[in-house]
């Protein structure tokens, strides 16, 4: 039982990192990306290959993942500079689908749908951290560092400029802000941090394949951010916990026919998304109404 809860907590922690990093561009910079799972995947594949081929430890593998992810994120930054709103959503969707094809076809690196098996247990500075409790501690430490980093970024002049762009791009550019550079940096920061989640995920499962980085995962991360509350620091963490706990709790519902249980879970999950958006669109952790938001954010 304890192992199960710890494993669930690790998954929540990994997804919380994804949600928090997506929120950084979605909530603070107004960049709506449907391709977040791709950077999760790039982090996971890079870390796995680094560990399997070069015997890298967790820190080195994660750093490699962040680097590769940050560079490839330029492919997402490029359309972000050209277009906004629905067009960017579609561009990120295109990137998601293209990258997924590459993930499944570049078999010498990614193993295709067969995936990479036998990722070695994680080591950190010479210590084995594969014990579930230690790994949970590692996950939470990563989450903590990323939360602190994002909090610092949001409160810096960089973060204020991003919010200015989100609220009115034309005005921000008139004020002499380098919109293109700021957006590119925001996307790079978000994507590199998302790669940390990928590295944790690869070491945690010791198996990864393309199915963990599909469009549905990107949408699920968005759901976490929206359900928790965009533009808040802790909202996405809460959202990640809820989105992962809900199906886990639903399996405890009694009297469901076993063959229908999967469908019923998915239906309740979908229904919860709908109801929440109708009755609490600012997210559970967000401010109650737009009035509050204005008062709280001068």
């Amino acid at each position: 039982m304890a192992t199960y809860i710890i494993n669930l907590a690790i998954l929540i922690g990994i997804n919380a990192i994804l949600a928090v990093t997506l929120n950084f561009i979605l909530g603070y910079a107004g960049i709506f990306s449907l391709a977040h799972a791709i950077f999760f995947g790039i982090g996971a594949y890079t870390a796995a290959v680094a560990a399997m081929k070069f015997g890298a430890d967790f820190a080195a593998a994660t750093a490699a993942g962040m680097l590769v992810s940050g560079v490839i994120s330029l492919a997402l930054a490029l359309p972000a500079l050209r277009v906004r709103g629905e067009y960017f959503v579609a561009a990120s969707l295109g990137l998601q689908m293209l990258a997924l094809t590459v993930f499944s076809e570049w078999k010498s690196v990614t193993g295709g749908i067969g995936g990479l098996i036998g990722i070695p247990p994680p080591r950190l500075f010479g210590f084995d951290v594969s014990d579930p409790v230690l790994f949970l501690a590692l996950t939470l430490a990563c989450l903590g560092v990323i939360l602190i980093a994002i909090r610092a970024l949001v409160r810096s002049s960089f973060g204020r400029s991003l919010k200015a762009i989100r609220d009115d791009e034309t005005a921000a550019s008139a004020l002499g802000k380098n919109v293109a550079l700021l957006k590119t940096l925001a996307v790079m920061v978000s994507s590199s941090f998302a790669a940390v989640a990928g590295s944790l995920f690869a070491f945690f499962l010791s198996f990864i394949n393309v199915e963990s980085f599909v469009l549905e995962v990107s949408v699920q991360v968005i759901a976490m951010v929206i359900i928790g509350g965009t533009g808040t620091l802790l909202g996405p963490v809460i959202g990640a916990a809820i989105v992962l706990l809900l199906p886990a709790l639903l399996t405890y519902l009694p009297y469901l026919p076993p063959t229908e249980i999967g469908s019923i879970q998915q239906m309740i999950y979908g229904l919860a998304m709908v109801l929440l958006m109708i009755f609490r669109p600012s997210g559970l952790w967000g401010y109650g109404s737009s009035q509050d938001r204005k008062r709280a954010a001068p």
Partner: peptide, 16 residues
Amino acid sequence: ATPQGGVVAMNKLVSV
């Protein structure tokens, strides 16, 4: 039918 779903379910079966 996904690895992640399978791993979560397996952990639950094994430890719960």
